[in-house]
């Protein structure tokens, strides 16, 4: 049974459109994200994946359309929205512990709850040993884990990830993908994961939305009905990867 089946709709995106001057980047995108789902979004290079996420997260205002979280208009001040960027967003003047705590501080978690949640997340992500170090004392992959820990710590209604492992080598990426699945399965957050890496999308996602070239629309929704942990050599995995690859060929 697909992982999202019979779950309630958490996020509803209706006719999302973004136009810069006379350039239409997003063209009436509609889709749902189910509660506790890990939805991947893939598309050809330059199709507007980052604009898509920035508009969804309200970093950019949409030209038209609605983004509803639990039926109410999405608002970063009201809803718990987290974003993990491609580049490091660690604050170099804060220790690992205080970096992870930042989102909870903004959301005004009570001090006792914040401390307890912080200890839990640091241990879950395996950052407890380096909690008192500064970001310049840890590796690049560790910095991304700090950002991921911070994002999960606020118990997000929606966690958006914009190619978070795009700049890491393959071995580290595999490790962090497994870690992400473990965190997602433990914390049951709703995750929207944007990537240009098709294998990564098939490995992580419950569903994959394939985007078209600009003006971006959803070309196809692909259900990834494979058991976890997934085997990249499984013929079904390979077939799905090929299907998505065929969909986003731009040449």
């Amino acid at each position: 049974m697909p992982e999202h089946q019979e779950k309630k709709v958490k996020i509803r995106v209706e006719h999302l459109t973004k136009i810069f001057d006379d350039l239409t980047v997003l063209d009436g995108i509609c889709f749902n994200v189910y509660d506790g789902e890990l939805l991947c979004i893939v598309g050809p290079t330059g199709c507007g994946k980052t604009t898509f996420l920035n508009t969804l997260s309200k970093l950019l205002p949409a030209t038209r359309g609605n983004i509803l979280i639990d039926g109410a208009e999405a608002d970063p001040k009201k809803h718990n929205i987290s974003f993990v960027f491609q580049e490091s967003t660690c604050m170099p003047w804060r220790t690992v512990r205080r970096n992870v705590a930042y989102g909870m501080e903004v959301k005004n978690f009570p001090p006792e709850k914040l401390a307890a949640r912080l200890d839990y997340i640091l241990e879950l992500v395996g950052l407890d040993d380096c909690a008192d170090l500064y970001p310049n004392q840890v590796s690049a992959s560790m910095e991304q884990r700090i950002a991921v820990a911070r994002a999960f710590a606020v118990n997000p209604d929606l966690l958006m990830m914009d190619e978070p492992y795009g700049q890491l080598d393959v071995k580290l990426r595999y490790y962090l993908e497994d870690e992400l699945i473990r965190l997602w399965q433990t914390l049951r957050s709703t995750v929207l994961f944007v990537t240009h890496n098709i294998e990564e999308a098939v490995y992580l996602g419950s569903r994959i939305l394939v985007l078209s070239n600009k003006p971006t629309t959803i070309k196809k929704e692909v259900i990834v009905d494979l058991p976890r942990p997934r085997n990249v050599m499984d013929p079904k995995f390979v077939a799905l990867r090929q299907e998505v690859t065929d969909l986003i060929q731009w040449w």
Partner: peptide, 27 residues
Amino acid sequence: PTLIQMARTYGASDWNIFLNICIPSAL
């Protein structure tokens, strides 16, 4: 600017970003 964007996605106010991101960054 990515740090400012990160703070905005959490719903941080302008004053919060000023105190927690801009001032330490300017030190």
